[in-house]
Simulated assay, not measured.
Amino acid sequence: MVVVAGRRRQEFVEVAVKVFTRADNRRYEDFLAEVSIINRLRHKNIVPLVGWSYNRGEPILTYEYMPNGSLDELLFHRNAGDEQQPTTTRIGQWGTRYNIVKDIATGLHYVHHEYEPMVLHRDIKASNILIDLTFQARLGDFGLACVLADGKNSYTDQGTPGTMGFRAPEYIYSGKATTKTDVFAFGVLVLEVVTGRRAVGRDVLQFGGHVMDWVWHLHAEGNLLAAVDATVLTDAGEFDTQEAVRLLLLGMACCHSNPSDRPTMEGVVRIISKSVPPPDMPLSKPPLMWPPEGWTSADEESTSSTTHNLNRTSAFMVETTTAGRRRKHIASENVPGHPRGRSSQEAFVSVYHTARAS
Score class of each variant (00 low, 15 high):
24 D>L: 06
91 I>N: 04
217 H>K: 08
92 G>I: 00
147 V>L: 09
216 W>R: 12
154 S>W: 00
143 G>C: 07
28 Y>E: 15
131 I>H: 03
329 H>T: 09
255 C>L: 03
93 Q>K: 15
324 G>V: 14
48 P>L: 02
16 A>K: 11
191 L>M: 05
175 G>P: 00
116 E>L: 05
182 D>V: 10
241 T>E: 12
75 L>S: 11
264 T>P: 03
290 W>N: 01
83 E>H: 05
150 D>R: 15
7 R>L: 13
105 A>M: 06
300 E>Y: 00
310 L>F: 05
286 P>E: 15
301 E>D: 14
327 R>T: 13
307 T>D: 07
271 I>A: 06
30 D>G: 07
352 Y>H: 03
301 E>R: 03
255 C>V: 10
279 P>H: 01
167 R>A: 12
22 R>W: 12
67 P>N: 06
235 D>P: 07
120 L>K: 04
122 R>T: 00
234 T>E: 15
90 R>M: 12
112 H>L: 02
260 S>P: 12
271 I>F: 15
291 P>C: 12
269 V>M: 12
180 K>M: 04
268 V>M: 07
65 Y>N: 11
355 A>D: 09
141 D>T: 04
312 R>D: 06
104 I>H: 00
69 G>A: 07
211 V>G: 02
12 F>D: 10
288 L>W: 04
143 G>Q: 09
94 W>C: 01
132 D>V: 11
35 V>R: 12
204 V>H: 12
148 L>T: 04
62 T>R: 05
200 V>I: 13
312 R>V: 15
198 R>W: 04
257 S>Q: 15
291 P>A: 02
127 S>L: 11
197 R>Q: 11
237 G>H: 13
85 Q>I: 08
97 R>S: 04
166 F>M: 05
261 D>Y: 05
323 A>G: 10
278 P>I: 06
343 S>G: 01
333 E>T: 11
43 H>L: 06
196 G>H: 01
102 K>S: 13
326 R>Q: 05
136 Q>L: 07
218 L>H: 08
163 T>E: 10
